[in-house]
Amino acid sequence: MTHILHRFLHKSADERGAALVTILLLVAIMSVGAAVAFERLGFSIKRATAVKTHDQARLYALGGEAMALAAAEQLYRTNAKLLALAGGNKGQVVSYPLDGGQIDGALSDASNCFNINSLVAVQNTVHIADQAAMQRFVRLGAALGLSDFEAEKLAASLTDWLDSDSRPLPSGAEDYDYAALSPAYRAANGLMADISELRLVRGFTPEVRAFLAPYLCVRATAEPIKLNANTLRVSDAPLLVALVGKGLDLEDAQRAIAERPTGGYADNAAFWRHRAFAGLTLDQNIRARVGVKPQAFDAKISVSYHDARVELTSTLALGDDGSADVIARRFGVIY
Rank of each mutant, 00 (worst) to 15 (best):
S304E: 11
V120Y: 02
F8S: 08
I29W: 02
Q284K: 06
R40P: 15
G87I: 08
S196P: 00
A28F: 08
A188C: 06
N79F: 03
L62W: 00
R287A: 10
A288G: 08
L83D: 01
E150A: 11
R77D: 12
V32C: 10
S157W: 01
A34P: 00
Y335E: 10
S108N: 04
T205G: 11
D104M: 14
H306C: 10
K46G: 09
A308P: 01
D165P: 05
R255W: 15
I327F: 06
V310C: 01
T159M: 06
L5F: 13
I29D: 00
N89L: 14
H127V: 04
L24R: 05
A155M: 07
R136N: 03
Y96I: 14
T2L: 09
P238C: 14
D194T: 04
A278T: 11
R77W: 07
I195P: 02
T221P: 15
S44W: 13
T231E: 07
Q284W: 09
G105K: 01
D99F: 12
D236T: 03
A68V: 07
H54G: 14
K81S: 15
Q131K: 10
R233D: 12
P206K: 09
L318D: 00
A278W: 13
H306L: 15
F204P: 00
G145D: 12
H3Q: 07
I4S: 04
A188V: 13
A19V: 13
A222L: 06
A151V: 08
Q284T: 12
F137Y: 10
D165A: 14
S111W: 00
E152T: 12
V93I: 13
Q92P: 07
Q284E: 15
N112E: 06
L198V: 02
T2I: 13
A121T: 08
E65I: 10
G203E: 06
H10R: 10
C217V: 08
R273M: 09
A324T: 02
A173Q: 04
I257G: 00
E251W: 07
L5R: 08
A253G: 12
L280H: 07
V292E: 07
P238Y: 11
A106Q: 12
S147T: 13
F277Q: 03
G319A: 13
A229F: 08
R209C: 11
A328H: 02
R275H: 11
A276T: 06
S147Y: 08
G100I: 06
T53P: 11
L240K: 04
V333F: 08
D14E: 11
T2E: 05
G145P: 02
